[in-house]
Simulated scan of single mutants.
Amino acid sequence: MTDAPLVLAFDTSAPHCTAALMRGGELITSRFEEMARGQAERLIPLLEEVLEEGGASWQDLSAIGVGIGPGNFTGIRISVAAARGLALGLDLPAVGVSQFQALACGYDWPVVCSVAAPRDRIYLQTLNDGTRSDPAFGLLDDLPMPHSKAEAAVIGAQAETIAERTGGRVLQPRYPLAEAISRVTLQRMHNVSLPAPAPLYIRPADAAPSKLTPPTILPETQP
């Protein structure tokens, strides 16, 4: 039995349920299932199937990796809550990995990472350029991006259009999503100051609380 760390990573931030098991830098097994709903019921059984396929158990794990978005709000909450619960129950580190970080995994030069959002909008973040820029959300024409002289490469949604503006070239993700999350987790799992995974929403929820005054159910008691 090798002493290399064993990482289980998963993501439900889009209409899918995906997971990967990796020991050291070697992918053992992975699964990807498209689904518009039902991730909450499917996730744990899927993880158990991945562990069984990899000949491992929950007790063999060294860390949990989880996709934190951006993406579907409900899906993100499902996977983040599962990761935090598993990490607590198994006494393991849990690492939250954004879709931007997963897209850029394996590249060490400036890359603009984009993720499709509702109503023709996108989520955008530039990585590996020496800055700590925050993710942005909106229509492509309204979002800031590197100057064309930067020749930043582009991965993700509307990549061709973005590459024309940055002077860079279009790249493909080096790894499938769950495997990329596993690899980033391996890099960061020993960081003792790493915060617990938290959803990366970026944009406000589509459904907002009602601004109407709630009805009085029972009258106040007079003194």
Rank of each mutant, 00 (worst) to 15 (best):
K211Y: 06
G69Y: 01
P146S: 09
I162T: 05
A157D: 08
L6P: 03
A104H: 04
P15W: 11
L61C: 09
L27R: 02
N191F: 06
L103P: 00
S13K: 13
M189D: 10
A153M: 11
C17E: 01
Q222H: 12
I68H: 03
G55E: 09
Q125T: 05
A63Q: 03
L46N: 07
L212F: 08
H147Q: 11
A94L: 13
A163I: 09
L212K: 12
R132M: 03
C17V: 12
S79E: 09
E151I: 08
A207S: 13
V97R: 07
P197K: 08
N191S: 05
A94W: 01
T185I: 04
E41G: 12
L140K: 14
Y107T: 04
T216S: 13
A63Y: 00
H16I: 15
I162L: 01
G168M: 05
V192M: 08
F32S: 12
A198T: 15
L46T: 15
L127H: 07
T221R: 14
K149R: 15
P204K: 09
Y201A: 02
Q101I: 10
E34D: 06
E49L: 08
G75N: 12
A159P: 02
G75R: 07
P197D: 05
W58H: 09
L51W: 07
P195C: 13
M35L: 15
G168S: 02
P199W: 00
